[in-house]
Design a protein around this nucleic acid. Structure first.
Lengths: 216, 216
DNA sequence: ATCCGACAGATTGGATCCAATCCACCGACT
DNA sequence: AGTCGGTGGATTGGATCCAATCTGTCGGAT
């Protein structure tokens, strides 16, 4: 067993700190503090932060440090606009290649989301939700596209957890996923793209409401 | 005047080393070597490499190091496919917003490309070429889209220089740019998208020929 | 009252050192 | 011949230390 490097584990911890709001948008990321929290020196912290910087999760000002990125409404709309374009491309490419077993794997992932939702475990739910969507995107066999989509999703991570806190949002997500799965079983790519678009629209609406409330 | 940090200057140097082939695709990037070459310690090198990693310019294997990314033909086609989708979006968004002065600025940039080409300065030419295209893309006012496009362009940097070495390629690029500019003057976004597509097609053809020759 | 510069604490940037890991080589054994 | 295990050099990963920069505060001058 080859142990993970500290920068990798730190990267994961940082992501979850941002996801859970322990590090909130706009906060300065003080390296010394994190070094102590994670029990490592500042070097691996800095490398992990560089990775997050290029994903747009944090912003960097030389000699001042790293700050958790704040999403403006314009940013948010741009992220969702780009996701709409790129996810449609991924879905159209992926659907024809999916076998029966792939569809069943997706059904399995969907069940995972719901079971996490039932237990009210938001962290597990966002993780399962991501696996569900990316299982579909990854099936397109376009690794760069997957990577870009990952970056776009991560940009809104800090806000997605808030979205899932609303029980009515969780229910709607479950219903929408079920409809997506049935379109998938029919191999109807266009219907799936359309459902995906609606799914995304609902989420952008809710998240921008959260954003607007926060800015006030 | 605030001096640039070492990691920034190193990042620039690394980019140009990759662009010029001093660091060729597949080469291991030995940190100690670069530290000596640039007169800094390994720390800023590592941070610059992390940035390049997330752009896909280098790949990283824990405990083994960084290697200059090699582009497969499939990668190349994917990059161009994504560029086609995203650049079309940028152009459609940008064209209606362009004022007379913006168009003149673009004409100016085009002249820069040609003057660099006339002097056979490939480095200056690729730089001017990029400024020309991105002046257009950036005008869309979608910063994330610009950033993604930057990453996609950088992924093929190592090969673009080779493309411009052919005099016939340089001439064709100049002709195509001129036609793009005249579509722009008419504010004909659709024509511009079409010309851009052709422009890109020519380049992907030439670059994949280079790639194929290289792999043999 | 406002602006300006000096100073102090906090934080980041970078250099150096040591530990952990990898890898190529080599000899022994099957 | 081929495989296995060990060994040494090379390279990366991380910790610690010091220098450089930033930021807020406090006097003092205007």
């Amino acid at each position: 067993m080859t142990r993970a490097t500290a920068q990798e584990t730190v990267l994961g911890s940082l992501r979850s700190d941002i996801l859970t709001g322990r590090l909130g948008p706009g906060d300065q990321v003080v390296q010394e503090l994190l070094a102590e929290r994670y029990g490592v020196s500042r070097v691996p912290i800095r490398e992990a932060l560089k990775t997050l910087e290029s994903e747009g999760q944090v912003v960097y000002f030389p000699h001042r440090g790293y700050f958790v990125a704040e999403l403006s409404v314009a940013d948010l709309l741009e992220v969702y606009r780009l996701r709409a374009i790129l996810e449609a491309e991924a879905i159209r490419q992926a659907v024809p290649t999916l076998g029966l077993d792939d569809v069943e794997a997706l059904a399995e992932l969907m069940a995972e989301i719901e079971s996490a939702a039932a237990q009210g475990d938001i962290i597990a739910m966002t993780a399962a939700n991501r696996r569900f969507h990316f299982a579909l995107f990854d099936a397109a066999g376009l690794p760069r596209l997957s990577r870009i989509l990952h970056q776009l999703w991560e940009a809104t991570d800090a806000y997605r957890a808030l979205y899932f806190q609303g029980a009515e949002n969780r229910d709607r997500v479950a219903r929408e996923h079920a409809r997506m799965l049935s379109a998938l079983r029919k191999r109807d790519a266009e219907a799936l793209v359309r459902l995906h678009d609606e799914h995304r629209e609902h989420s952008v609406g809710a998240v921008s409401a959260i954003l607007a409330a926060r800015d006030r």
